[in-house]
């Protein structure tokens, strides 16, 4: 079964993890901001992060992470939500606007001008770290052993 929410989950998650200021900057490069009404003005809070005992067992609480959320509606009725890491209200506003605009005709343009570049940057950042990690991978070689 195809998860019909998958694309939206994808872009919301992408914007949640973007570096500070990046989502707002890309949005403003791409388009003029539409008028909107707040359903929930940006607010800073936390989410309790859980892990599992032994990696796979029963859940336990590790600690909280700061999150900013908001919700808004466009004149056409589209509702945009944002939950982003950190405490940047302007980024949350931009992420919610993009989430709403992705439900309009502007979706293709925003995909090209905002989401694709954001995804490319994230991938490049991950690749940069992965390549450094790979360079520290141990290649073992066995020395000549004593037993004849």
């Amino acid at each position: 079964m195809i998860d019909q929410n998958a694309p939206r989950k994808g872009w919301m998650g992408l914007m949640a993890k973007a570096p500070e200021g990046r989502v707002a900057a890309l949005l403003d490069q791409a388009t003029q901001r539409p008028a909107f009404t707040w359903l929930r003005a940006p607010e800073v809070g936390t989410v309790m992060v859980r892990g599992r005992a032994g990696g796979t067992g029963a859940p336990f609480n590790i600690g909280e992470v700061t999150v900013t959320r908001c919700a808004l509606t466009l004149p056409g009725g589209e509702i945009g939500h944002a939950y982003i890491q950190g405490r940047n209200k302007a980024d949350a506003e931009a992420a919610a606007l993009i989430d709403a605009l992705m439900q309009t005709d502007a979706a293709d343009a925003l995909r090209r001008q905002v989401l694709d570049p954001l995804e490319a940057e994230l991938t490049a950042h991950k690749a940069h770290r992965a390549a450094r990690a790979a360079a520290t991978k141990v290649d073992f070689f066995t020395m000549v052993r004593g037993e004849d």
């Binding site: 809070g45 936390t46 989410v47 992060v49 859980r50 599992r52 990696g55």
Partner: peptide
């Protein structure tokens, strides 16, 4: 800070 919820357990694997 208000708490918005709790996460799914992180997948360390």
């Amino acid at each position: 800070l208000p708490r918005f919820g709790a996460s799914a357990p992180v997948d360390t694997g």
